[in-house]
Design a protein around this nucleic acid. Structure first.
Lengths: 237, 237
DNA sequence: CACAATCGTAATCAAACCGTAACATGCGGC
DNA sequence: GCCGCATGTTACGGTTTGATTACGATTGTG
């Protein structure tokens, strides 16, 4: 997430107080921002500023949010640009139809700025993770995993893991923060053809935790669902 | 929306001119219609015609609109049937305010047929979207829910919920503003095969409210009908 | 072939969750 | 204003779920 410091956010909102508020909170988080007060301005700023994310109000003068959204999706260089849409609950009855076409998340007004910040971050995390597919190394606080060398170190000291343990940890790291059911883990780490009891997963989680005490608190068990690796990596020691 | 061409609408209205008028306009829109002139007839037609939406006058001979509404909601196979209620301005003051009834939308007489058509379409759109909604995160004022991380935060602070609590809250958020009977909740959150008392729902609602005080006012109990999550998200903090 | 490492299963144990029942309160109808 | 039903609230015990440990099977290796 530290690589996000130069992230630019375009805020498209005609009500000055709201724009101001969002601007303020995004700034606090270290995001750079620009504000457009109309659809037309938004389209201009998209070209000049090349933001990494757009917060887009649905109701706008001139060109409305739906239209802006469509244009963003239809232009090749912005087709994948993440969009968070702001909608008033009251609008829903009439206008929301067009929403299916492509916002990545929605926030209904009134919203808390904090919640919006959380959503922005969550969206970035999601996207980061999606692009993490080809990664060959991961880190989690003092833990580092290197796939090419098949090596895991904690504070620089190597930890020897078995194949299953390694695969399991790799999968957890790739999907940091997301809840993974035992079935998902069995299907991916063990293989789709594997038929065994889900308890197997528990035992291997246990073995991981024994070898790497760091993970004791980091791997969180969620009852009746599965496990997740905390997205807060523990501090370096 | 083109899949709506075979949509059937039941019009429950004792005044012939109004019934006629509504009938005409709905027909123009390509909806199939049936008309009931009394509450009793409405209940009969509900069974034989299986409409996709009901336009229901509040004032009716025999069985009034409120009662018809209740019965629709309490019958398992019509519990989620969308209802638009027609109310006279005068009635508003006493009956409706406190009750909230179980309708999905209201139109006050006198109304323009075009406006009614617009409301019908809007309601269908809303419901279509609700059922096809694959969102993984929701917000409700300062509350944010993230399904993939199985995490609920209020003002950014995490709240730990059990599986049932989480599922219940998710369903409420997905159907914000709709009245949900205990049976509907049991069937969806607990599962179609679940057999237990409806009181279970009350207890879980209670537990949700304890963990998330925000919901104290937001989850509204409607006597002899069920619960609904307010469609106004609470103001930001 | 023997040995060691790894892995899956089963058994045991603890804790959390959940449903029910029982009691309390509130609300509408008469 | 009282009665009865619907809902709110609380507490308790059973059941489910997960943690943990031990063991036997399997695999690979020298």
């Amino acid at each position: 997430m530290s690589g996000r410091t130069l992230t630019k956010i375009l805020i498209v909102e005609d009500e000055p107080e709201i724009a101001q508020l969002v601007n303020l909170y995004m700034g606090k988080e270290g995001f750079r921002t620009s504000v457009a007060k109309s659809g037309g301005e938004a389209l201009k700023l998209l070209k000049s500023e090349r933001p990494d994310l757009v917060i887009l109000d649905l109701m706008l003068p001139e060109i409305d949010g739906i239209e802006v959204c469509k244009r963003i999706r239809n232009a090749p260089d912005t087709a994948l640009l993440p969009i968070i849409m702001l909608t008033a609950k009251a609008e829903e009855s009439d206008t929301i139809v067009g929403l299916e076409l492509g916002a990545d998340d929605y926030v209904t007004k009134p919203f808390s700025p904090k919640a919006l910040v959380a959503r922005v971050k969550a969206l970035f995390r999601r996207l980061d993770r999606e692009t993490s597919d080809q990664r060959l190394s991961f880190s989690f606080g003092p833990l580092a995993m290197d796939l090419s060398r098949h090596e895991v170190t904690v504070n620089g000291k190597e930890v020897s893991l078995t194949a299953k343990e390694f695969g399991l940890l790799e999968y957890l790291l790739r999907h940091q923060g997301r809840v993974l059911t035992r079935d998902v883990l069995l299907n991916t780490v063990w293989g789709y053809d594997y038929y065994g009891t889900t308890r197997t997963v528990d035992v291997h989680i246990r073995r991981l935790k024994l070898k790497i005490p760091l993970l004791n608190d980091a791997i969180i068990s969620i009852k009746s669902l599965g496990y997740k690796l905390s997205d807060q990596a523990p501090a370096l020691s």
